[in-house]
Structure formats: C-alpha cells, structure tokens
Design a protein around this nucleic acid. Sequence first.
RNA 1: GCGGGCGUGGCGGAGCCGGCAGACGCGCGGGACUUAGGAUCCCGUGGGCAAAGGCCCGUGUGGGUUCAAAUCCCACCGCCCGCACCA
Length: 830
Amino acid sequence: MTASYEPGRRELYWLDRWQEWDLYRTEQDPTRPKYYCLEMFPYPSGDFHMGHARNYTIGDVLARFHRMNGYNVLHPMGYDAFGLPAENAAILRGMHPARWTWQNIEKLRYWFRRMGYSYDWEREIATCHPDYYRWTQWMFLFLHHRGLTYRARAPVNWCPQCATVLANEQVVQGGCWRCHTPVVRKELEQWFFRITAYADRLLDDLKLLDGWPERVKVMQANWIGRSEGAELRFRVEELGEDITVFTTRQDTVFGATFLVLAPEHPLVKRLAAGKPGESRVLEFIAEAARHRGEPEDGAAERPKRGLFLESYCRNPATGEDIPIWVADYVLMEYGTGAVMGVPAHDQRDFEFARQYGLPVRVVVQPPGGGLDADTMTAAYDGPGVMVNSGPFDGTPNEEGKARVTAWGQERGWARPAVQYRLRDWLVSRQRYWGAPIPIVYCERCGIVPVPEEQLPVLLPEVVDFSPRGMSPLATAPEFINTTCPTCGEPARRETDTMDTFVCSSWYYMRYVSPRYTAGPFQKEAAFYWLPVDQYTGGIEHAILHLLYSRFFTKVLYDAGLVPEPEPFRRLLTQGMVLKDGAAMSKSRGNVVEPAPIVEKYGADTARVFELFAAPPEKEIDWSDRGVEGVYRFLMRVWRLAEVRPGLFRQVPGHPEAADAAAREVRRLVHRTIKKVTEDVRDRFMLNTAVAALMEMVNGLYAYVGEDRTGGDPAVVAEALHVLVRLLAPFAPFITEEMWQLLGGEGSVHRQSWPAYDPGLVAAEQVTVVVQVDGRVRHRFQAPVDATREELEAEALAAPRVRQFLDGREVARVVTVPGKLVSIATRPAAS
RNA sequence: GCGGGCGUGGCGGAGCCGGCAGACGCGCGGGACUUAGGAUCCCGUGGGCAAAGGCCCGUGUGGGUUCAAAUCCCACCGCCCGCACCA
C-alpha cells in the first residue's frame, strides 16, 4: 500500500486537535432547532468489541449528519454502572465493585473517544455516582409521594447453594446461572412501583409512536396484555362468601360446570380445613409451589393436575351447585386466581374436565351447529349462537357478552372488568451495588421516606460481600442505624437497593443538565431538549427498559416537569454483529477486538464497514474481507485528494458546465447529494448511502483519469468539496485530513451539509425501454421531456420493434414518459 | 398454539408508492503498469444456447390480477424473532 495516509497515526492526531477545538460541546440555543440523538448507554462490563461499536456508530452518523444540517445536536454518553457483575467481581476477586466499575468505564471511555464518536464529554454521567443516584433516589420518593409505590410480600428467586437472591434474568432454566442449583421461591417484603396504574396509557400511547418499529410496539402491547371481560361472583354457601372469577367469556357462564382455584388462593386452605382430604390438599399446594420455580417452557403441554376440594359453589346464571377444584393450571398472579370451568369452550378447561370426568355442556353452537358435548375432542372457542343459556338462547355470543354482564349486574353477581398481563414493577434488590432505597423504618412512625434534602443516602464503602441471603448492606451497622427523620428516635434504614432498570429509566433526562444540583434536571433545559428525537439501541430492550422509561416520562409529564408524555420519538433497533454466525461473546471466544482493527485500518474503516454491511436493523456477520474492501474504498477516496493539495483555494467554487463529461460528473455529484441526504434523513439506509458514495467515487476516477490529475479543476473541486462533506459523518478522521489538505476552512465537521441543485439532478437524456408483449426488445435515448406521442412514434418506428410486430397488429400501447413504451399485440386480422 | 418478520447471483446486500432484476461491496476471471506485486488502475462476472447480432430461462413453490409482478392478491413450503396454561 503506497497511500500516504496512515490512519493509525493520523487518527490520533485528529483526536487531539478536536479536543483542543472543543468540537462537540453543546449549549442550549433557543434560536436553533434542537436534535437530541441518543444511543442506549452501556453497562461497563469491561470489554468493548466491534459488536458494541455498531450501535454507537449508527448514532454518531445521525448526530453528525444533523449537526451539519443546522440542528443544535445533543449527543451525550454515560454508563449504566450499577449491577450485579460488579458485585460478583468483588466476591470472586476481592475487588471493590466501585473500583471494578470505574476501571471498566475508563476502558469504555477510551474506545468511545478512539472510535471518533462526537459526544459532548462535559455531559458524561455514571449511574453509580452519588451525584446521579441521589436523583434516582429522588425519583423513588417522587413516585412514593404520588402514591405510585407500595410495599408487599412477594416471592423472590433464591439459590440455596449461593445463599443469595437472584434477579429473574439470572435464573437460567430454573437454575442458578452460576452453580445451576435449582432455584426456589422465597417470600420477602419488597417495594413495588405501581406501573399498572399507567397500563392503559402505556398501551394507548403506542399509537403516538409513529417513529417506532412496528414489532416493538406489538411486543409492548402483548406485554401489557389488556383483556376486557367481566368479574363474576360464585356463592359459596358453606363459607357465606363469594368467589370472584375474571373471564373474557361471560357469554359461556351457563356452561360453567366447575370452578377452579389456584393452589395459592387463600380460600383453598379454608375450604379444605376439617375435610377428609385436607392433608392431600396441603400436599398438593406444597407440590405446586415446588413446580412454580421450574422453567415455564412447555408449561402449557404439561398435564394439568388438580384436586376436588369437596366443596360446592352456585353458578349464578343457572343456579346449579358446581364443584370447586384446586388445580395447577390456574395462576394466582393473574385475574383473581380463580376461574370458572367451561370445558366446552375453553381448551384448558376441556382437557381438565376430560381428565377428571367433569361434565361438559355446550352453550355456544358454531354456525353449522352439531357440537356435541359427549363426542367433541377439543373445546370450541369460535363464534356462534348461545344455547342452553336460558333467556339468551339464540343470541349471537359476541353480543351476548355485554348482555350477560348487564343481566348479572342487575342481579348483583357481575360487573365489567379489565385485566392486564402487566404486573407491578418489583424494584427491591437484595444487593450492594445499586442505589439504596431512601426509606427509614421507625418503630413509632412506621415507613418514613428520607427527606429530599438528606439525599443522597450514600452506599457505605465497607460491607461484607460474601453471600449470606440478605442484602450486604444489612452487614453495615453504621448504615442501618440512623434516626427517624420525623421523630428523631433511633430507626433502621431499608437495606435493599433499587433495580438498575430504575437508574436507566430516567438517564436521558439527566443529560439535559447533567451537573444540576437543585433537582434531577433543570426544567427549562428539559423543555428545550426533550423528548429524545432519535434513540438507537438493541432489540433486547424492546420491552423492559423502553416500557419503564415510558412509565417514568408519563409520571413526570403528569407533574408538568417534561414537555411530552413519550420519551423517544424515533427508535432504531440495530441488529447484532455476528462472528462466525453467532453473537460475539467472551465465553464463545469469537470476539473481534477493536485494537488490531483500528491500528491496522483505522476507526474510519471499522465504522464504515459496520454501516455498509447491511441496513442498521439487520444483523451483520463480521467479515475481514469486507473490512479490507472498505479500507480500499477509503484509500481510494484519499488518493483523489492526495494529488490536489490546496485545491479549494485555487479554483472558483462554482464550475461552469464545460463539456459533456463535466456535466455528467456534476450530475453525479448532485444526484449523490440527494441520495445520501434522503437515505440518512428519511430511511436510515446507511448502507445504501455508503454505496452511493462509492458510486460517486467510481465516477470521479473515470473523470480524472489514471493519474487522478485530469478533468476541469473547478468541476473536480466541487466534487471533492461535496464528497468530503458527505462522507464526514461516516468517516470523520480521513475526511478531516482531506479537508485540511484540500485547503478547507476550519474543521470539516463544522461545515454545512451540501445542497443539491434540482436542475442538475435530472438527466437531460434518458434511456427509454420498449417492451413488446411484456419483453424488453429495444431501447433508445430520448430527451427527458419528450412527450408521450414522440416516444410512441419513435418506438413504433424502430426496425427492431417492427420485426416483432411482423404478422401481428398493435392491440394497445402504454407509455410512461421518461421510462418506457409498452406495446401489446394480437394476431393480425386476416 | 398465538403474534410479528423474512425467502433475490458463489457470498453480504440493492431495487419492493408495479415499469431495464441483481446498485454497491466481497469473491472470481482477464488486461494494464511493473524487476516483482497479495499494491494500484481498467474491463468482465445470474444460468443456458450462440462465432456474433441475439434468443430462452431466472427473485422459495403453485396460482391470480395487469400491457407489465421481486414488488399487489390467494394458497402452500422453509427459516428467524417475540409470547406462551394470562381465563
């Protein structure tokens, strides 16, 4: 390679210059339109590989593009720095989680800078810093004061081997991710966020998110899982109480031949008490509890197990007494933990009824009729007409739903109800490396929130990390023991920390005023910058992080603290970078390290390769060949500039259209501006934008000749002036070098984006295609503005065309000016 | 099972508001320059037939709409992702 540009060396040079010039500092400026461009911030795990780089590279191109287009761009970076791996490092290597974390942040920071990402480093944040988690605690209190937190007993995942609590994500196939010991359930007092209070709005507002991928919205809608139905009450005379069930099929209540309770349902033990089968029931409950910890995979295929409780309740529609069962296919967490068994019209109830010989009664006949309880082999859950349903016989079942609910409501046993799959958000974690929950327990005053002015509740430095089954903070007496903020008496601190998803649910707000000390963010800055215009990150956060962030934004919006109810206007979910067909990971040993790539080819090459290989949403396979191809392209670009130092100072900016070749080059240049602009701005098709630049470079080589010095200097100057700027967001280093060499003023990254001349974009001549009976038979050149008649005349006159018309006559001619003439024929009339 | 998405050369991928299929890159073949070149520049490259002009076939499979279908519609096959006893 003879090129005089050495990326490994020159990129370092430019990094220093840019730092001197403070190129990416962002200030509020109400006179300019703002553009908030954000990539999901990383967890500082210690490794940075080319798979990570893609996300930030995509975001960086968008940020740089908008900056050149006159937007005031906010493009910050930070670290999602709390989390369990840091604590494990403490346990395994005796290194303090803080030290481990800050070391890793140091590495990430190096690579972000080295890759040329245009972050405003003045705004860097880390969620584990007290100046940040102080405001995470503030958010907890903010929700608390708005009635959106509560404390309740809840089961947690518990590894008996490690004697510690595990996060849901750390339970792999029912076992501990580290020692594979089967996880058991354990009841603990936990803090919850009442996200279900926002379920409807989280669902409805998905409609506002035009700029989100459809599949993410669908995933969120499914996750929220809204179901409309009714709550029905079944009288239990024996207890003098009702059992309430939730159903979406009120229309089938006449077919309810039994009732089923979840094993954890409180009435199960009461109903069994004193009955002959009591001990078997208790055994059943215990057995079911063990199963709950098992992997859910295939749960639907597992045979349903149940037990008759020797009790009855009254079907409110028919007045019949029906048996009450307990069964493991009913979930306590959903609805009321009790369901009515309608075997004819619910597959699960059907399987259960057949297994235990319970009666089946058809109450909805499909359009053709003929459904018979004795012979049916599966439940019928389609539409039909109600039968065996007293006053409702003959009613279409869909219509019957509302009528049955109203009928039952008049009689006092039904009411309309809505259920969600979404559960409240459990935020307590029995871990050290997280934001302490700012709560104090006082014997006299009860649960007392820490007053805002006493924040942050600092994490103690010294604690015992060895796993013992409670929060490590419980081992630090100087942390636990405090005084009650209300009465001043001795009190105890909450020893759990917050789920790290709490930290990441509001970080995009902190960036608008990252050093603000009077609140989580300055309101004026929030109203200027929010919402995020462009958010880029992995699909793996399609539900959790994005749903939690939407929740936080809505709560703050309701308080008037942020301008819009949704946090992220446009969302781009980038695909993974694979190596040998699999996601890069240390354990798999297929990680592409950035250091050798960047040293050999430069960060520009790494960036452009990841952009060029496929559209951003798609996964790409790392290819050393592909990388070399991109490197060749960039060096090819460089060589165009290499032979023309100072060019921009020597020739006029606006070339006269000299000869045909010059005009063709100018057309290419302006067409490329249009293509790249639209691909980046409207379609996120960064791969085709790069392809268009390659095409342009190929065209320029043809124009300037083998020694690269030919062509009209003014035309070449215009072309290079455009090329360098179009390429700048993709390859910031080499374009800066070219810009200086060619004699540009200032930094290329402070230049405005090229504008194209629409008059130049349109070709003067076009190739018109002539089809005869659907096949291309001829093509000819014509002026772009040639009329329909002119084109038809020319097409029909062409000898090639006449040949195909021989012995046939023209049936029809369809002409699209500027494109084609299509001739349909039929056999000539004799 | 339910929901969403995708099937285009040897490979990654363009084109999909119907209008020249295969942009751009990789790989491969050829040429130029050169002591040399695994550098660089240029040309070619879906398959078949042909000396050539050209002809035929081609976007998972089968059908349909149309002057015209990779693109729209229907059925099927295959792959990927999400959810999965949610009443």
